[in-house]
């Protein structure tokens, strides 16, 4: 395998990882854009999506349904479940606190995250679960590098969803209402936008994306666990900030960039630093890039300059 093939392989690795980050980051960024709230429980929604679809899939496989169909059915179970969950989280934990000091909903978000983990632990147990492969992963060779059909599928699904979301936000009346609410909720309210409805829908859409991300992640790695949402949520949040939180294109860009940074970081830090630093510093590398970006552009790559709003 030549040096260039290795590099190409690392780019592929980064793209797959990044498209998953991007999907999850969208949920963070949408909520943040409208409520200026870090929805810390978002990672747990991803986890619930993965576990619900796994649970449905295992029942279906037992009754002999073919793989891709099981995948679709698992997804159709996970998405509404997560939508409902997202809706409930907003209603119960965030809406009563909309006028509270800004850190109050952060604490309830952490509470929700702990509660969801505990519930998942009770419902599905504490074991790491193996997820049956439903989408075939046939390796395709591009030069000396490989990418599997499953990985291509993940990238494709992410792209389609992101494009769809952009259309929804920019071309539909609902999207206009969402943008208006993000700019100024009071004025939007005066113009006849039902703010509560818009916020609920934002959570529902974000959770649907999270559900898809959960299913894709568990397919890709063949593993699901009640704790899987935490780290993924953290990475996605980082990606959202990198791109400029509140900006949808920024979240996608941030996600893909973070994936590439991690992948190239883990791949090359060791050789570049002469073995002094190794692949265990990949997160340090990612955070340093983030800090550098924020020092140069305090609102992220594509974020707008926000004046007085702290």
């Amino acid at each position: 395998m030549s040096k260039f093939d290795l590099f190409l392989q690392q780019i592929f690795n980064g793209l797959v990882l990044g498209s998953i980050y991007a999907l999850v980051a969208l949920g963070y960024t949408m909520v943040y854009g409208i409520l200026q709230l870090i929805n810390f429980a978002h990672g747990e929604v991803v986890m619930v999506g993965a576990l619900v679809s796994l649970w449905v899939s295992l029942k279906l496989i037992a009754s002999g349904v073919p793989g891709p169909l099981v995948f679709v059915l698992g997804l159709t179970a996970a998405v509404p479940a997560c939508m409902l969950l997202g809706f409930l989280i907003e209603r119960i934990a965030y809406r009563p606190l909309r006028r509270a000091p800004r850190l109050a909903p952060l604490i309830t978000a952490i509470g929700v995250s702990i509660v969801l983990q505990a519930l998942a632990m009770m419902l599905w147990g504490k074991q790491y679960k193996s997820v049956p492969q439903l989408i075939p992963a046939i390796p395709l060779h591009v030069g000396g590098a490989t990418i599997s059909t499953l990985q291509l599928f993940i990238i494709a699904v992410s792209c389609v969803l992101m494009a769809g979301l952009l259309v929804l936000i920019n071309k539909t009346p609902l999207g206009r209402a969402m943008r208006a609410t993000a700019q100024d909720p009071t004025v939007a309210g005066l113009m006849g936008v039902d703010i509560n409805r818009v916020i609920s829908i934002t959570f529902i859409i974000g959770s649907a994306l999270a559900a898809v991300a959960g299913v894709l992640v568990s397919q890709n790695y063949g593993i699901a666990h009640y704790y899987m949402g935490f780290l993924l949520g953290l990475k996605a949040f980082t990606a959202a900030v990198l791109g400029g939180i509140g900006n949808l294109t920024g979240a996608m860009l941030g996600g893909v960039l973070l994936g590439l940074i991690e992948s190239l970081g883990a791949g090359y830090i060791g050789d570049l630093s002469g073995g002094f630093f190794g692949s265990h510093y990949k997160d340090v590398f990612a955070f340093l890039v983030l800090i550098l970006v924020l020092v140069l552009r305090p609102s992220g790559l594509l974020g707008e300059r926000v004046g007085g709003r702290a």
């Binding site: 290795l6 392989q9 690392q10 690795n13 980064g14 797959v16 990882l17 992640v217 790695y221 593993i223 704790y227 899987m228 935490f230 780290l231 991690e262 992948s263 190239l264 970081g265 883990a266 791949g267 090359y268 060791g270 050789d271 190794g278 692949s279 265990h280 990949k282």
Partner: peptide
């Protein structure tokens, strides 16, 4: 190196 929460090892396995 990796960590005890990761599931993605593509990068280190590639190198």
């Amino acid at each position: 190196f990796t960590d005890d929460k990761s599931t993605d090892f593509q990068a280190i396995l590639t190198s």
